[in-house]
Design a protein around this nucleic acid. Structure first.
Lengths: 346, 346
DNA sequence: CTGAAAGCGCTTACAG
DNA sequence: CTGAAAGCGCTTACAG
């Protein structure tokens, strides 16, 4: 079986009728439709996507761009795989397929996206890992490709995004530690220009100042967002002249490396140093003492991203209310034991 | 800028010449080519993939099918992200793009693949998680879509595959444990029909028997290949009337759950029970005592998969020798301390 | 309700 | 070296 032509020939009707029958158009005799459907099923015929796309100007494919850097691999981040399920549950309603587009680490993300967009492989894009200045946002805006980002950026002031509540997490983490008597609280920040780092540290700073604690730049530890980065952070913490009594992590897997480095020096998390992590991750659950961190549903985030994206696509917007609001995605505190001690005055 | 027609118009030449210039055909005046290239760059023109695919009958896209089940998400497996880099390094040489096709957990993998193949979104496929009987292999063979699998299967006797050396791992693990005096060695096996489970257990059985140790079905513990599965395995081990002195795990993350369950009962891995894991994973490196396990390069595996696939594609086979040989991918032992004790007679 | 025909954006023999 | 034209597989006005 090749194409619609062969199928039509075998049924002795025109390709137009076959197409209409297959696409559920109302102006087809019911008996004809049944014959066509049966034959298509028998021959395993499915419309060639290229022909269809060329004619309709749409591909019915949505792309999710991810970065497959060595760092991402080492981190073994399940973030996007988790989000994927939620996205698909929304897209499936409209027979849209999701493909993940991995940008190789040796390719510039902007160039990669440009190529994907120009080739018109997808109708819309979801991008993530937004940088403070992110040219991809201009690119997509100018190309008029519907898109939504995971993460804010300064690059444009009006585009659809959903971002995790980094402010809220930093604020609540600081509050929690201050309530337990901590005044010297360190924080980790990513060494890259990813936007969330700025948001996170800024909220930390504001919350500290609200409590009359001066912001000390030496307590902002810039490391990679990885297990290794956590180890490095532990190392740097221990070297500080006046050691902090607490540390807030920006990335869940850092806790693993941090714990290890601390324990190597006989410093016990949850007893000698309070630790609060970011997102609850299955892999971090084994930590002893259990890590205090924040939890969210990746699936629900995927659903929200999918709906927001469709609300911005002409063909689907009727089904989704676009209130124009971007979303700060809330996270729920999971109290562990890594910060469960009251600091006694030294 | 829309299509080739507009670009040709702006240059006042025919679309045929533009196409030839852009595609590096030799029969184009060098000056003309330069003008075309400059204009294309300026307008950000890139050939529409649908038009191109339709005409050429190829998409220049390779698909990597992955399964985004809840289990896969929880496991946070970086396996495919790691392989991706290697694949891309090969594909980039031929301007082929890689897309990851996530099959939703509520869709039957065979149906999903059928749809992807029929729509002709990709020129070739890489599939994984091969089952003992896997209809996807017949599907791809019949559709004449070039493909390569990660994992063997009984479904066909001649198709290109690369599989991890499960035999070798099981064999060496058993040898190692026997050499340390163990006779009662348990093994975990996946509860699904995934082919590797059969290979793994069969090799374990053969090696035991070679050492005169009878195979005891009660020591084959069927659990999910996940952290939770490891916990469950630990639980079942402890319940066995005659407790084994060693256990071999089929999946790296199981070690995390296993350790936890054992420690809850005061059973210390590496002292009270020998443990050997499968693949070395960044996340498992924190385990105390360090896990004895096996190591491999995901990147190199990706390169090998990419090359094997291209050797089976008419358009690229000239560049790659296809010796028809499938590959059993070797893993290297990383000796930890989880099995570093000699069993003394009880 | 159905058929014949146009055309989506490309690439490539074929002429010249 | 270049242009004009055919045609890849579809969908969809347009006639009837």
């Amino acid at each position: 079986m090749k194409g619609i032509r062969q199928l039509a020939e075998s049924l002795d009707i025109s390709i137009g009728t076959v197409s209409r029958a297959l696409n559920g158009r109302p102006d087809v005799n019911e008996e004809t439709r049944l014959r066509v459907l049966a034959a298509a099923e028998e021959f395993g015929y499915v419309a060639n996507q290229s022909g269809r796309s060329l004619r309709k100007g749409e591909t019915k494919v949505i792309g999710l761009m991810i970065e497959s850097s060595a760092e991402a691999v080492d981190n073994a981040d399940n973030f996007f795989l988790g989000v994927t399920s939620g996205l698909q549950s929304v897209f499936a309603r409209h027979k849209l397929d999701l493909v993940m587009l991995p940008c190789a680490s040796d390719e510039e993300p902007h160039e990669y996206l440009k190529r994907m967009v120009a080739r018109r492989i997808v109708d819309a894009m979801i991008i993530s890992n937004t940088q403070r200045i992110d040219r991809r946002i201009d690119l997509l805006s100018r190309a008029k490709i519907p898109f939504v980002t995971v993460g804010r950026s300064l690059s444009a002031n009006n585009f659809p995004w959903i971002d995790l509540d980094f402010e809220g997490v930093a604020e609540r983490a600081v509050e929690r530690l201050v309530a337990r008597g901590h005044r010297r609280i360190a924080i980790t920040a990513p060494s890259s220009e990813v936007n969330l780092g700025y948001v996170f540290v800024e909220s930390y700073r504001r919350t500290l100042e609200r409590h009359g604690i001066a912001f000390d730049p030496s307590l902002v530890i810039r490391v990679k967002s990885s297990e290794q980065g956590g180890y490095q952070a532990g190392h740097e913490l221990l070297l500080l002249a006046q050691r902090p009594t607490a540390v807030i992590l920006i990335y869940e897997l850092m806790a693993i490396g941090l714990y290890r480095r601390l324990m190597e020096s006989g410093v016990m998390p949850g007893r000698d140093l309070a630790v609060i992590g970011f997102r609850d991750a299955p892999r971090a659950r084994f930590l002893q003492p259990p890590l205090s961190c924040f939890r969210m549903s990746l699936y629900d985030l995927g659903v929200a991203l999918g709906q927001m994206l469709l609300a911005h696509m002409p063909a689907y917007r009727e089904f989704y209310s676009n209130d124009g609001g971007n979303i700060i995605w809330p996270l729920e505190l999971v109290a562990g034991e890594s910060d469960a001690f009251q600091l006694t005055e030294v």
